[in-house]
Design a protein around this nucleic acid. Structure first.
Length: 573
RNA sequence: GCGCUCGUAGCUCAAUUGGAUAGAGCAUCUGAUUACGGAUCAGAAGGUUUGGGGUUCGAGUCCCUACGAGCGCGCCA
């Protein structure tokens, strides 16, 4: 299915190029064809391969035929698996068939292609003239930091992204930082891809836990032990000492906790457009109206003195209680009402949750479907939890444990950039281990500095150039064909791939792709910097100009990547 | 017991969603600077992708199975 989609996309790009109307690809956004002329290379190649296959007797080209960038440079700039995919259809040995395909294509080389060959099990590899990469530079500089690698994939879809949503019964710990960094970066990625994200966090400021928290504060203020199942953390004692007389401990405590959480998030450079109060949502009647609609839909029943939602209709493994036999609502009902409210702030609802909440997803999904929402309008992203190491041993992240590590503490120690990069470096699907000592002690070799250093170096070149009276002349006058060194071309390849990386990061909700990319770009730049002097006296002025432009393009790429991660792009370290 | 998510170099993780010889960083070892910032670069070493089956031109990726890990399984939130 993916293969078919990809094929259609590629086809429609090819078709768009020759001005043809694409049928059967309804609703598929085509950002690259419109915005990234250099992506046309792929369209040309695909169209050429397609034609050649038909000429070779392939009646219907299978959907799996793609043009892709080989992992290894020796395999050329682009390659196609056409012979492998088609060999069965035509009943031929892939290698033989591939040879015919290669011969046919060689007889009529597509534009920009210098040579092509068959390799491995039957891949056809294309080698292109460097000029296609020089076009990338023009593209990056022309579109600029604002325009390059920006797509309209989201087509203005409003999307509500809820993340962090920690109970206001204590400070945020280092585990919450993962969701803060992830959610914030995801919003940036979505925004760059044409979505209109709305960052939101939910405050569970009512219910049993809040009462317990208030009781714990009151007890500590009175110098007593906390009630059974109360909050035992040291912070409760500290906070209680600041609590004035005559206030409602629960209310005061919630406000205190919220202020504390906001401060920690601000230190991480994370902010929300909406802090949504459960209490206010309930008072607004959202829960009742949701319940009414569920009843009307025939999804509600009573049993054992409680009110139930028949979530099993929509695939949950058991039905769920909405109102307990004591008349109190469970957590679910207000949350359903709250999600209903969120649809006014986004047509797509994304919840970023920790692994400990994954069991909750089917019932929410079911409830929203029962309310008539399309299943695909709700998306739960379940991330793996964070493991924290300090002094080589694991620190448990529990409000009750005394050795908890606060998010604020972590950010104070290593700064927001190091923290964010550490959180964003790996897939949300894998458990994240954060070694606090390593973050601090290796700070000079931390990957985030590696990337930031590249950006600072570029700025330094600019400063040097100014001091020496060297100015960048217009791009049209630059002879970019002089950029033909291994380092220079590698840098351009990296820049070329950003739109694809971004598209993948958006589609897969995986900002860590950007982290990986930005490190690669920085690596390519450091190599270039080492081997390709820009301002040195023995560099010919023409080369100097071309390299200055390459440097500028790299700066743009780094700035875009770091911005997507919410990490600062410093001019000096 | 059932369910979900996973298992990749000594460690932390990637892998263009099924592609070619599985790549980076850290740690280890060896080199590079009268140079635009050495917070850098080049090289070496490190692997039966947890084990076993299957699907096909082709599997780290998909299916089955065993083992191992984390997390869920409430009229808690």
């Amino acid at each position: 299915m993916n293969g078919l989609g990809a094929f259609r996309r590629q086809l429609s790009r090819a078709a768009a190029q020759v001005g043809a109307k694409v049928c059967g690809a309804k609703g598929e956004a085509e950002p690259f064809a419109a915005r990234y002329p250099q992506a046309m290379i792929r369209n040309d190649l695909l169209a050429a391969v397609h034609d050649a296959l038909i000429e070779l007797g392939v009646a219907e080209v299978p959907s799996g035929v793609v043009i892709e960038r080989p992992a290894r440079p020796e395999h050329g700039d682009w390659s196609t698996n056409a012979a492998l995919v088609c060999s069965k259809v035509v009943g031929r040995n892939p290698r033989e068939f591939g040879q015919e395909l290669a011969d046919l294509l060689t007889a009529n080389l597509p534009e920009h292609v210098e040579s092509l060959e068959i390799a491995g099990p039957g891949f056809v590899n294309f080698r292109l003239a460097n000029s296609w990469l020089h076009d990338v530079l023009t593209e990056v500089v022309g579109q600029g930091q604002d325009g390059y690698a920006r797509s309209d994939q989201g087509a203005g879809t409003t999307v509500n992204v809820e993340f962090v949503s920690a109970n206001p019964t204590g400070p945020l710990h280092a585990g919450h930082g993962r969701w803060a960094a992830y959610g914030d970066s995801l919003c940036r990625v979505l925004a760059r891809c044409g979505y209109l994200p709305h960052a939101e966090t939910y405050v569970n400021d009512r219910g049993v836990q809040i009462q317990l928290f208030g009781a714990s504060l009151a007890a500590r203020k009175a110098g007593e032990g906390v009630p059974a199942d109360g909050y035992r953390g040291q912070y409760v004692i500290d906070w209680a000492a600041e609590m004035p007389d005559g206030v409602d401990p629960a209310e005061w405590g919630v406000q205190y906790a919220l202020a504390d959480q906001k401060a920690a998030l601000a230190a991480m450079h994370v902010s929300f457009e909406t802090w949504s109060s459960e209490k206010e949502a309930v008072e607004s009647g959202a829960s009742e109206s949701a319940l009414e609609r569920l009843k009307k839909g025939g999804h509600v029943f009573e049993a054992d003195g409680a009110v139930w939602l028949r979530t099993t209709t929509f695939g949950d493994d058991k039905d769920r209680v909405l109102i307990k036999s004591d008349g109190e609502m469970t957590y679910l009902l207000p949350d359903v009402g709250y999600h209903e409210l969120k649809y006014s702030r986004g047509s797509l609802i994304i919840d970023v949750l920790g692994a400990d909440h994954h069991g909750y997803v089917p019932r929410m999904k079911a409830a929203l479907q029962a309310l008539g929402h399309a299943p695909e309008s709700y998306e739960a992203i379940v991330g793996q939890n964070v493991r924290l190491l300090r002094d080589g041993k694991e620190v448990k992240l529990s409000k009750r444990a005394g050795d908890m590590v606060l998010l604020q503490e972590l950010v104070d120690d290593v700064g927001p950039d190091v923290a964010r990069f550490a959180y964003l470096m790996q897939s949300i699907d894998t458990p994240l281990t954060i070694d606090i000592d390593a973050l601090q002690m290796q700070s000079s070799e931390n990957p985030v500095f590696y990337v930031q250093y590249a950006h600072a170096r570029i700025h330094s070149i600019g400063k040097q150039a100014k001091e020496r009276g060297i100015q960048r002349q217009s791009l049209e006058d630059a002879n970019l064909s002089l950029l033909d060194g291994k380092r220079e071309l590698q840098l351009l390849r990296e820049l070329f791939s950003l739109p694809e990386v971004l598209e993948a990061a958006c589609r897969d909700r995986a900002p860590h792709n950007v982290s990986t990319w930005v490190r690669e770009l920085a690596g390519a730049f450091h190599g270039f910097y080492r081997d390709c002097p820009v301002l040195r006296d023995d560099v010919a002025p023409e080369v100097q100009q071309a390299r200055l432009w390459l440097t500028e393009a790299t700066r743009i790429g780094l700035a875009i990547g770091l911005d997507l991660l919410g990490v600062d792009a410093p001019e000096q370290m």
